[in-house]
Write a protein that binds this DNA or RNA. Sequence first.
DNA 1: GAGCACTGC
Length: 679
Amino acid sequence: MTDLDLDSSFIPALHKPPSLLPIAKYRESLLYVVEKFPVTIVIGQTGSGKSTQIPQFLERAGWCSDGKIIGITQPRRVAATTVALRVADEVGCEVGQEVGYSIRFEDVTSSSTRIKFLTDALLIREALTDPLLRRYSVIMVDEAHERSISTDILLGLLKKIRRKRPELRIIVSSATLQAEQFLKFFTASSDQEAKKQEDGQPPQEIATIVSLEGRTYPIDVLYLEAPAENYVEKAVNTVFDIHTQEGEGDILVFLTGREEIDNAIQAVAERAMQLESQHGPLQPLPLYAGLSTEQQMFVFDKAPEGTRKVVFSTNIAEASVTIDGIVHVIDCGFVKLRAYNPKTGIDTLTTTPISKASASQRAGRAGRTKAGKCYRLYNEAAYQALPETNPPEIQRSNLASTVLQLKALGIDNVVRFDFLSSPPSELMSKALELLYSLGALDEYAKLTHPLGSRMAELAVEPMMAKTLLSAPQFNCLSEMLTIAAMTSLGGNIWFYHDGERHKMESSRRKFAVEEGDHLTLLNVYQTFITKGKKEAKFCHEHNLNYKSLTRAVSIRAQLKRYLERFHINVDETLSSKQQSSSNVDKSNKAEQIRRCLTSGYFAHTARMQPDGTYRNVEGGTILHAHPNSLMFNRKADWVIFYEIMETGDKTYIRDITKIEKNWLVEYAPEFYKLSNSRG
DNA sequence: GAGCACTGC
C-alpha cells in the first residue's frame, strides 16, 4: 500500500454535490406533482438547481423507460450547451450520450440520449416534422418568464398537443411574478376543450405551482432621494463613491447603449487620474453585443490585485451574460426596447423605463457570490410606478415569420391560436398582408405549396426567403445564398477599437461595390473565403468580425442544405468562374442580383431626394441612409433596403441596393397597383 | 452629414 498523495489524489469539486442543493429535499414532492398533474409551474429561485436537477429526478424515476426522452428548452444557445455539459458531468457521461444538447448547427445527441437540452426555437422546428412531439415524455420550458416569441409559441403548441397526448408532462419554469399567469393559461380551457371537460377532469386538476427555495446572498437595495437628471453622470459619480467608501468587490453598471457606455468609460478614465493613490486604480470595461468576442472576454478576466473592475453594460448582462465577483450593481432604470409599428411598418428603438421584474433581475446580479448592494438611480416612488413586466415580444414585433411558421405547423386560423398574450390584430393583419403579397399565402390565407411551405422552412426572414427561392430564375442562387447569410448577421460585420473608426471606414471602402450594400457584402464574403482563406488574421487586418463571418459560412451551408432538400440545385461553379470573368459578365450578374432582390424586397423601397435623404413609396416619411451604408454618401434614385429602424428622432434604412423603378411593377404588379390606387 | 437593446432558426 502506498501513501496517498493528497495533492494528486484529491480533485477539488467543480460543482457542489447535487444532494446539497435545496432542491434535493423537494425530490419526492416534485415527482408526485409531475405524476399527478399534466402541467407543473415551477418557481425556481436562482441557485435552486431546477434546470440541472429536475431532468435527472425524472429520468431516474422512469420517465424515459419506454424509450421516450426528456426535453428541456432554453431561450438561448449558451444556456442549452452549458447546462447540458454540467448535467452530463453530474451524471458521469460524455455529453451526447445519455445527456445531450441540440442547437442550430450543433446536434450533440445520439440514440442513447435520454435528457436533451435545446433552444425553444429548435423544438418548434421539430414540431414541423413531429407535430405531437411524440419523442418526448416530458418537456420542460425553462426561463418562460422572459416571454420570447418562441417561448410563447411553444407554450401555445404544448397546450394544444396536451389535448391529444394527455400523458405528456409539461413543466414551465418561471420567476415568481409571472407564475400565476402560466397557471391560468394552462387551466383556462379553450372552446374545444370546454366541451370535453363537462365529463372529464375539472380544470383545477390540470396544473399546479411548485415553489423551490433558492440559495442566494442578501442584497441591499438603495434608492436616490430625488431622480437623477443625467443618469450617466450620476452612474459615474456613484462608481467613485463606491470606490472611495466601500470595501472591495467589482461593480456592474446597467446603461442603455453603446454611446452611453463609451461616454461613461471616458469619464471614469479621466476622473480616475485625479484619484488619490490610497484608493487603488479602477478598470472600466465596456460590454455590449456589438463588441467582437475578444473585446467581450475582458469582462471575465479578474482585475489585478488592488484594482477594482467596473463593467458598463447594456441589458446583455441582465440575463445572457453572467460575470462572477460582482458585489455592486448600479441600475440606471432604463432599457432600449424595440417596438414595431404596423401602420408604418417601421421598428422603433426607444429608451424606456424598465419593469419591476427587470429591476429585480438586475439587482440579483450583485448577490451571486456574497452579499451585495444595488444602487438604483431613481427614487422609490419611481420604482413603485414601474410596470410589473414589459409587454411581451409577441405584442410588439413584426410577426411575418411567426405567422408563417404557425401556418406551416398546420394552424390555419392564426388569430384563434391560443396565445399566452394575444398580439394586437393590426400586427396579425400586417403580417398576413405581407405574406400574401410575397405569395406565401393564397387569397384564402392558406399556405401555398411549394413556395409558402419552403419559405417557412428557411431560417431567414420571409422577404429574404422569397428572394432566395426566386434566385434560380435570375441565375444568381449561389450569390444570393451568400447575401442571405451575410444580411442575417444583423450588422455585426465591422468592428473597431478605440480611436480606430477611420481605419475601419477605409477598410470598408476597399470592399465597396458601386451598386450597393448587398453586393458589397457578397464581395466581403467571397474575399474572406478565397483570398482570406477563412482566417482570423485576414479579418483583423480588415476590421472584420471573425466570429460573424464564420457564422455566415455556417448559415450559408445550412441554407444550401435546405435548398438541396427542395431539389433546387446550387451551382457553385458559376460564382467561382465569376471571379475571372469580364466586366460585362460581372455587371450582368450584378443586375440579375439587383432584380432578384427587388422580387423579394419590393415592399422595402425608397427614392432619393435632391437633398440626399430618401422617401418611402407613400412619400410621407423622411428616411436616412444609415452611416454604415455605402449609400450614405452616394447618389441613387430608387433603392430597396433590408431593414428600417427609427432611433431617437431619425429613421434609418440599412443594407441598401440601387434598383430601377420599372422592376417594381415587373416583379410586384399587384402590390404596386394597390399602392397607386391608395394614393 | 453621423451611428443598433437583445435573442433565435
